[in-house]
Design a protein around this nucleic acid. Structure first.
Lengths: 343, 343
DNA sequence: GCAACTGGATGAAACGTTTTAGCCGCTATA
DNA sequence: TATAGCGGCTAAAACGTTTCATCCAGTTGC
């Protein structure tokens, strides 16, 4: 009962070993009566395929790996869900590895994955530098798709979301609402996303000759607490310099800003409007529902998986592609002048 | 370059195949000079071990799986991190599978894991019923550890957190603070956790002869919105029946209650105190930092992994254990009378 | 100088599949 | 009637490891 092999099934059913294999893999190549006998034997012995042997023979596994920076981050978990959908449709299995932003762990994972001869790897690599271990995988012929990184590299596919465009969307919206003194809350600017979202906002401002101004309130991290401090800072400004709208680099900052403003008696959106970024679950459930720029996270995962599968299938004939998705602005009460009096 | 085998390495280094294997697995059984020659050959050919072959030979993989109900839920992601720590120390690999509360997907995952001959499975099964596919795994000799479920089954280990005790902690705290009219917000009671947390609260009340009363405000889900509605309901009560403290079945509810109370001008904790459950990341960052019952989530994962590894190692000699952890109350401003005037 | 060890290497078997070539008996075709 | 074709099956090879029994050449002990 512990571990019956195909051989024992064959003996039990009185057929050859190859026939059992055929029943498993091309059932209509074998006559109904023998097929049934084999199936009975399988059931009786509790036979379960041994995947190692299968893979050994096939030279490749039916597994696809996704290596994320942080399993606890909703951005990645949603991506994982998207990728899962696509991968499971093909009968393969998606395994999730967590690098935890640790380069050594990332490397270790990739080594193990290589030993397992995975069919492909979706990865958001730690850091922006060169990636020797990724190159090694690619040299070996294992397809790699970069997620949210390294758009434009010739040797692999990538998927990403246009953060500059996200910044534009937020800014255009605030300008449309008539705001002319606007603050960007975010930092450090060394984080690519923070810088690009700002760049988009600045570009939108530039494009429209409204005479509006964009002030940066730099933070040292992307947390609720940092958002609160930034709000304090803004409130300390002289009244005529105080912004009437705030665009935050992410939703945690935005929630912090919202809390601090509310605590100080500043009305949102009547006195100051807020737009966040990421559209996390809490954005809609905040005390004042938060407008936010939403990234198509599941879609990102799905597309990444599709690119990978295509490359895995067509091998060398495959042409690498770089897909960039556009984010979407979700307007809620925190920035909606029309609804400012509601409730 | 694509896929050198041990055989080619051997030929390249002018040694036998077994020697290469020895270099890999028991390096000090082979003389330094040949060892070096083999290592050079390995480097030159870019040889990478083939794990399928290894597993096939070994009859078992070096992988441990954890099957969670929801990869996006912080409860599980923290557990995963805990389990990872322990598993990686042993050189094994932890793979995360997501059942998404879907029994069919759970079954499919378990089948694939069985085919892979994983060394063990940590799982929070979907639902509370009988688990035929789990039994099948166990029959096959694959160790299974239940997480947050089925404490007390004889055929497997389990780890869990004592929800009744969590309810007690919250209630004792509120009674200590002098509250006598208290509400429990949560539901549906068909969810084991919701029922047990309530039972703990009720038991604490019973144990202390304070004459305090516990009213249940039933919700249909565990969301921020449901919390808001529950708060509305409580505020609609005549003044003398209105509770002075609320204990919520989870933090989302508590945040909803907090928002609604604040919006209606009710002061927290001065007028009404709040205690939540789970101590999610947002609890500490809420407008009024939220008191909450914290479960040792990483610890849960670590211990589960340890039990599993022990069983995997000692096999039949292993005695199943059921570890129950005690939760901990984190007191913050939302329920702290002493600090009620702060800020 | 011979037997007994010993460290270091070898060769072959085994793990459980999948796949390919081939065999057998039958029917349809010429 | 011979032949080709075909469906259904078998036998054997191959995938890349690990391990175990064996062997060989020195060295040691007597």
């Amino acid at each position: 009962m512990a571990g019956a092999s195909i051989k024992e099934v064959a003996r039990h059913a009185g057929v050859s070993l190859g026939t059992v294999s055929n029943v498993l893999n091309r059932p209509d190549m074998v006559s109904p009566t023998t097929r049934q006998r084999v199936l009975d034997a399988i059931a009786e012995l509790g036979y379960v395929r041994n995947d190692s042997a299968r893979q050994l023979r096939a030279g490749q596994s039916r597994t696809i790996a996704i290596v994320v920076l942080d399993v606890a981050n909703p951005f990645f978990t949603d991506m994982v869900r998207g990728a899962e959908q696509v991968v499971e449709e093909t009968g393969a299995m998606l395994i999730v590895c967590n690098s935890g932003e640790d380069s050594a762990r990332e490397r270790r994972h990739l080594e193990l994955l290589e030993e397992q001869r995975v069919r492909g790897v979706l990865i958001t690599p730690v850091g922006d530098g060169p990636q020797p271990h990724l190159e090694k995988l690619i040299d070996r012929g294992i397809p790699v798709v970069l997620v949210d990184r390294g758009t434009g590299r010739a040797s692999r596919c990538s998927v990403a979301v246009d953060d500059v465009q996200g910044g534009r969307l937020a800014m255009d919206h605030l300008l449309d609402q008539g705001h002319r003194r606007i603050a960007y809350v975010g930092g450090p600017l060394s984080i690519a996303q923070v810088a690009e979202r700002h760049a988009g906002a600045a570009a939108a401002l530039e494009d429209r000759d409204t005479g509006a101004e964009l002030r940066v309130a730099a933070t040292t991290s992307l947390t609720v607490t940092a958002g609160r401090r930034a709000a304090e800072e803004l409130l300390a400004l002289p009244a005529r310099q105080r912004p009437t709208a705030v665009f935050c680099a992410n939703d945690l900052l935005a929630l912090g800003v919202l809390q601090e403003l509310t605590a100080r008696g500043v009305r949102v959106p009547a006195d100051i409007a807020i737009v966040g970024y990421d559209d996390i679950e809490f954005a809609a459930a905040a005390a004042v529902p938060l407008s936010s720029v939403r990234q198509p996270r599941e879609q990102l995962g799905r597309t990444a998986a599709e690119l990978l599968l295509e490359e895995a299938e067509h091998g060398t004939a495959h042409r690498h592609r770089h897909v960039v998705f556009q984010p979407e602005l979700v307007v809620r009460r925190s920035s909606d002048q029309a609804r400012r009096s509601r409730r």
